[in-house]
Lab assay of single mutants.
Amino acid sequence: RERTTFTRSQLEELEALFAKTQYPDVYAREEVALKINLPESRVQVWFKNRRAKCRQ
């Protein structure tokens, strides 16, 4: 699998949801995934990595 490159608009959507909740449920992830045209699994991994970045 190729590394996913997020567009600015995708990142804005993801960061907006992250500001609301660092642990979105599957419904919130699927909703944003549809909105930004990415698989839910990519959204899930983005949140995992974003939380790790936050802890550093």
Rank of each mutant, 00 (worst) to 15 (best):
R51N: 05
V26Q: 15
Q44L: 10
I36K: 00
R8T: 10
R42D: 15
Q22P: 09
P24A: 02
Q44V: 13
L14M: 06
A52Q: 07
E13T: 13
T4L: 13
A16C: 08
Q10N: 02
S41Q: 12
R55S: 08
L11C: 02
R8K: 15
R55C: 06
R3N: 15
A33I: 00
F6T: 07
V45M: 03
E13H: 15
T21G: 09
A52N: 15
R1T: 15
L38A: 12
Y27N: 14
F47Q: 01
Y27P: 14
L11A: 06
S41F: 06
R1H: 15
A33R: 03
L14K: 01
V32M: 13
W46H: 00
K20A: 09
K53Q: 08
L34A: 15
A19S: 11
V43M: 15
K35R: 10
R29E: 02
W46Q: 01
R50I: 02
S41C: 11
N49K: 07
E40G: 05
S9E: 07
C54R: 09
E15T: 03
R1W: 06
P24I: 02
S9D: 14
A28E: 10
Y23C: 06
K35T: 05
L38V: 14
L14N: 01
S9Q: 15
A19R: 10
K48W: 04
F6H: 07
Y27T: 14
N49D: 11
Y27H: 15
S41E: 13
Q22V: 07
P24S: 00
F6Y: 15
R1P: 10
E15N: 07
Q22L: 04
R55P: 06
E15L: 03
I36C: 15
S41A: 14
V32Y: 02
L17I: 06
T5F: 09
N37R: 13
I36D: 01
E12G: 09
Y23L: 04
F6R: 04
D25C: 07
T7W: 02
K35Q: 04
I36P: 00
R42C: 15
V32W: 01
K20V: 11
K20I: 10
Q10H: 04
E2A: 05
E2M: 13
E40Y: 06
T21F: 06
N49W: 05
P39M: 04
T21R: 04
L11G: 07
W46C: 01
A28M: 10
V43T: 03
E31Y: 05
R3C: 05
N37H: 11
V26A: 14
V26H: 12
L11W: 05
K53I: 14
T5I: 11
A16T: 13
V43R: 00
V32D: 01
K53C: 14
R8A: 12
R55H: 07
R42A: 14
K53N: 07
R51P: 03
A28P: 00
Y23W: 14
L17V: 07
L11S: 06
C54F: 12
T5E: 12
K53E: 12
A16S: 13
E31R: 14
Q22A: 08
L14S: 01
T5P: 05
N37D: 06
A19N: 11
T5A: 10
L11F: 05
D25I: 01
E13S: 11
K35F: 00
Y27I: 14
R8P: 12
R3Q: 09
T7L: 04
D25R: 02
T5H: 05
T4Q: 08
F6S: 04
F47C: 04
P39E: 08
Q44N: 14
T21N: 12
Q22H: 11
Q22Y: 04
K53D: 15
F47I: 05
F18L: 05
I36N: 05
R42I: 09
K53P: 08
E31C: 13
P39L: 05
P24H: 00
P24E: 00
F6V: 09
A28Q: 10
Y27D: 15
L17S: 03
E13F: 09
Q56C: 04
E15M: 03
D25K: 04
K20C: 11
V26Y: 15
T7D: 10
P39N: 06
E13Y: 08
R42L: 15
N37M: 06
E13V: 12
R42Y: 06
R1A: 02
T7A: 08
E31P: 00
E40D: 07
F47D: 00
Y23V: 07
R3D: 15
R51H: 03
D25Q: 02
L14I: 01
A33P: 00
R29Y: 06
K35P: 00
R50P: 02
F6D: 05
S9M: 12
Q22I: 07
E40I: 08
T5Q: 08
R29G: 01
Y27E: 12
T4F: 09
T4E: 14
Y23D: 14
K48A: 13
R42E: 13
E15Q: 03
L14F: 02
D25F: 02
L17F: 04
A52T: 12
I36F: 08
E2Y: 04
V26G: 10
A33C: 05
R55W: 04
S41V: 09
L38D: 01
E2N: 11
A33M: 03
L34T: 14
S9H: 13
V43G: 00
N37C: 13
Q10T: 04
P39C: 08
P39H: 05
Q22G: 04
A28K: 13
Q44S: 12
K20E: 08
Q56K: 03
V32G: 00
I36A: 11
E13Q: 08
A19C: 08
L34P: 02
F47S: 01
L38F: 06
R50F: 02
V26K: 14
L38Y: 04
D25N: 08
E31F: 03
L17Q: 04
L38G: 03
Q10R: 02
E13R: 06
L38M: 13
V26W: 14
R55F: 06
Q44P: 01
T21D: 08
R8N: 14
E2W: 03
T7I: 04
Q56T: 11
T4G: 07
F47A: 00
V32F: 05
L38R: 03
V45K: 05
A19T: 12
F18S: 05
A16M: 12
L34W: 06
N49T: 11
S9V: 09
L14E: 00
R8C: 13
E12A: 13
K48P: 01
Q44E: 11
R42P: 01
A52G: 11
K20R: 11
R55K: 09
V32A: 10
K35W: 01
S9Y: 13
Q56Y: 05
R3L: 13
N37I: 15
R3V: 11
V32H: 01
Q44T: 12
Q44F: 09
Q10I: 03
N49I: 05
K20F: 05
R51A: 04
P39A: 08
V26M: 09
N37T: 03
R55M: 13
E40R: 09
C54D: 15
V26S: 13
S41Y: 08
V26I: 13
C54N: 12
R50W: 03
T7R: 04
Q56D: 15
L34F: 13
R42K: 15
E15Y: 02
K53G: 14
V32N: 00
R8D: 12
F47V: 04
I36Q: 03
K20G: 03
R51S: 04
Y23E: 11
R29K: 05
P39Q: 06
Y23H: 14
A19K: 08
N49F: 04
T21L: 03
E2H: 06
A16F: 07
Q22N: 11
P24F: 00
K53V: 12
E40K: 07
E2K: 09
F47L: 07
S9F: 10
K35C: 03
